[in-house]
Write a protein that binds this DNA or RNA. Structure first.
Ligand SMILES: [Zn+2]
Ligand SMILES: [Zn+2]
Ligand SMILES: [Zn+2]
Ligand SMILES: [Zn+2]
Lengths: 159, 159
DNA sequence: ACAGTTACGTTACTGTATAACATCCCCTGC
DNA sequence: GCAGGGGATGTTATACAGTAACGTAACTGT
């Protein structure tokens, strides 16, 4: 949607990329972790931890909350997914190879989320904070609005 | 802390200002709402809904979660407090007369929160979003770091 | 065999937030 | 006075988010 190309939501492609990344990092992308990543990718929208858990169970896995949260911790550490603080939900990263803090565009019509990873926004925040002698260590930028697709269709598509 | 003067945390001043605002808007700043606002102001740090509830009860009020959340909804609508999504907590607004989306500087040493209501940051976000044809309606900017006071004292003050 | 590490299972719990319904109170029209 | 309505609050129950603590299974290298 943003600077990034329109986010290849195809789970298989994302999984393959993740596989690559983990391999080069010596990390173990287990079956469970792969499943959770696939579920998040397939959702195409932010998805809550308990919704992930439900899907895991419906796939025959056992599972309890810690199962999901531990797995999410791993995926977050590897930069494969992001957490949206304003939604208490998770999305797949559209460019995990490039480590980045999170700037997100959340469409209030269709619920989809794109990444706006603007160096200009980040720098502006750091500068403006510095002006009041505040030293930035991490940023949370979550922007609500309407995405390009939903702007074209005034009656918001929900798909 | 920021562009705003160091935020008059005196609860009585904030209450008086709120009283004013609600009066001119024809809104009803009831005893309960006043109490919750006073508790939030007195906290000087972000405070969670259940901590507010505890304080209400310790003041003799009855109360259950909906009591607090409904009251917070009112205060949020009136722009008297802000919600910090990244902390699930609430702070008093330092300038309720001027409606603004939230940009916050959260000190990870002392826990205090200042408002960075930078028009430049806001404009940059809008511009960068527009570049990918995303129309912004609301922003959440929560910046973690160290405030001026805590930068001076390397061993972070917790007061 | 042994200890160490990594991942996962399981139970139990805390914290955050909302739904749904009942009550009280004040105001207005009759 | 007394319906009736709207705003504010009380009350109960429950859903959703996140973590602590402990147990187990499998793979590692020695
Ligand atoms: Zn990303
Ligand atoms: Zn949309
Ligand atoms: Zn404010
Ligand atoms: Zn500080």
């Amino acid at each position: 949607m943003p600077a990034e190309a329109p986010h290849d939501h195809s789970p298989s492609a994302a999984i393959a990329a993740a596989e690559q990344l983990c391999a080069t990092r010596g990390q173990n992308l287990t079956e469970l972790r792969r499943s959770v990543l696939r579920i998040i990718c397939a959702a195409e929208r932010p998805i809550g931890a308990y919704a992930i858990l439900d899907q895991l169970r419906s796939e025959g896995r056992s599972g309890a909350p810690p199962t999901v949260y531990r797995t999410l911790d791993f995926l977050l550490e590897q930069g494969l997914v992001h957490r949206l603080a304003s939604l208490n939900a998770f999305v797949a990263c559209c460019d995990p190879a490039e480590r980045h803090g999170g700037q997100f565009l959340i469409c209030e019509a269709c619920g989809r989320v794109g990444e706006l990873n603007s160096a200009r926004v980040e720098a502006t925040i750091v500068e403006e904070a510095a002006a009041v002698r505040f030293a930035v260590s991490a940023q949370t930028v979550e922007v609500l609005g309407r995405c390009a697709a939903c702007l074209r269709l005034p009656a918001g598509p929900s798909a």
